[in-house]
Amino acid sequence: MIRFENVTKVYARGARPALDAVDLEVERGEFVFLVGASGSGKSTFLRLVLREERPTAGKVFVAGRDLSTLSTWKVPHLRRQIGAVFQDFRLLPNKTVFENVAFALQVIGKPRHHIMTTVPDTLELVGLGGKEKRRPHELSGGEQQRVAIARAFVNRPSILLCDEPTGNLDPTTSVGIMRLLDRINRTGTTVVMATHDDEIVDQMRKRVIELDNGQLVRDQSRGVYGSTR
């Protein structure tokens, strides 16, 4: 589903690479934790998958497509197959929960009847049934993140990228979010989640990829947060 071939990303000329010759493959339906110290290149990895950035060297393949040869006007189509969730939720404050989720479908031109059925289903799935009319400021952090997840998932992407989705949440709320992500993963969606949350990683026992200064230093199935070397 996602394949990195010897990918190096250098932001500024002469700077230390944010990613350094990373080689890895994520299979369809996998759940992968991306861990590593701050600045180790986790967000850079995710941005490369979204083609928000392009690699300085090497090749990135997503859903069978070589992103280096993907023309700019096809990028939107790539992104329709990828959902993305962030630490800061990124909701639209003056739209309701329903509108925030529907927005993702409206802007890719989905027909109204499709939106009217899919959005409530998705809100139900993330556990926000009955809160459609609230605005983001009337929700708890955990609920806001659920809205963000609903928005990322409402178009049923094959890949869900999460950049520290529990970074702003307390441990109990985080567990709820993790259950949700796990459920989404079990529908067949590939999930890649960058995180600093050791408890969650240790609990979930999924594949763990560790980056250190841009280099891939560990790739462990059913791994834990701390290095076991």
Binding site: P76, R80, R90, F103, A104, V107
Partner: peptide, 17 residues
Amino acid sequence: RRETGIMRLVGASNLFI
């Protein structure tokens, strides 16, 4: 910017944005 950022993220076409 918030809206357009999200639009890009979810794959709205350039023209649409």
